[in-house]
Design a protein around this nucleic acid. Sequence first.
DNA 1: TTTTTTATTGATTGATGGATCAATCAAAAT
DNA 2: ATTTTGATTGATCCATCAATCAATAAAAAA
Lengths: 199, 199
Amino acid sequence: MPKIGMEPVRRKALVDAALKAIGDHGSLDVTMQEIARSAGVSAALAFHYFGSKDQLLLATMRSLLRQLKEEAIAAIRQAETPRGKVSALIAVSFGAEQFAASTVAAWLAFYVEAQRSEETRRLLTVYARRLHSNLVAALSPLCGRLEAQHVAEGAAALIDGLYIRRALDAARLDVGEAAALVEDYVTLKLNAVKPETGR
Amino acid sequence: MPKIGMEPVRRKALVDAALKAIGDHGSLDVTMQEIARSAGVSAALAFHYFGSKDQLLLATMRSLLRQLKEEAIAAIRQAETPRGKVSALIAVSFGAEQFAASTVAAWLAFYVEAQRSEETRRLLTVYARRLHSNLVAALSPLCGRLEAQHVAEGAAALIDGLYIRRALDAARLDVGEAAALVEDYVTLKLNAVKPETGR
DNA sequence: TTTTTTATTGATTGATGGATCAATCAAAAT
DNA sequence: ATTTTGATTGATCCATCAATCAATAAAAAA
């Protein structure tokens, strides 16, 4: 059985399995046993490749962030107008995968972990900053840099808040509804400054 | 030592100690040992009065919710105008105690627990519904019931989102700034419907 | 062919922590 | 004075789980 070049394959399988387990449980209270089993290998192999549970969890988080980053880049590229870029960023946050109940639950669990783990906190901060600067970049041409900072702040908070509500009761919060709420906020703020630039 | 009528005293001490421990750790990963020690009793006594760790944690949550409820009631009573009531509700959410880093961390931890514990989820849902209905009640005279529902939805999400940002980096998010952001949202929404009713 | 390297796991360890229990002590009731 | 009840804890049990390790097997290199 032992074929060569298994490392990247196993790493990916383990990271994916970890994400699934975390999503299912809705917390980081998952055993290496469960993760490894789900990836089709022994727990010992997970330790062999990642060294510790913490490292596997961090790798899982990085994977989630990388995916989000790539989606954001693609979304921005496709949009033509600044206003379109803003909508694209919002759409990514509420995309099918990102807004899936299990993904949202995983995010929440990582936020709690951030209270304890320096590196987790750092990664989450990076994500927050990226979303913010992406929003500001798209908003600035519409209302000036200063106002863009404020609108971005509000939009980001709104997105995070809707994630929480999603985590609490996935059934009651519609995806489209959530996205519309943020869109409405942005439109409203833009109209307040430059009435002709809005929707 | 064994004086009679200790039960309520111990219960309160344990609940307070649990809240403190959870806030300090930023998660529910606290031992009964630590909680009991902080309350000045043995771990065995904590089990004697609460039966299990889960029950102690639920009692802790109920305590937090009761406090929030009372603050909200008092705030609404003191305010004269509907608009004032809305502001009062927002102010409560960002009150010194509620918005303290450790309290926010505890809330976050409970949200994660809600993925696993039915009763925790129920309690959080009750809280969410109460905030919502309080907001709607205050907003309805200003913009009609239907619009009030929407504004309340947005305001609640905004509050939750600002809590998360607070949890991630308590230093960078000012309390006044957070409250102002929500106020601004409400004012903006009200102006959009009935321009003469706003700030 | 022999040696080395990579892949892999079962078995084991060590620590942690929730939960139980028997025993103690003092106040209150009889 | 004796019994009962509430308060309290140290010691202990038991399950879980992260982490380690020695052993095995096959591919690749020498």
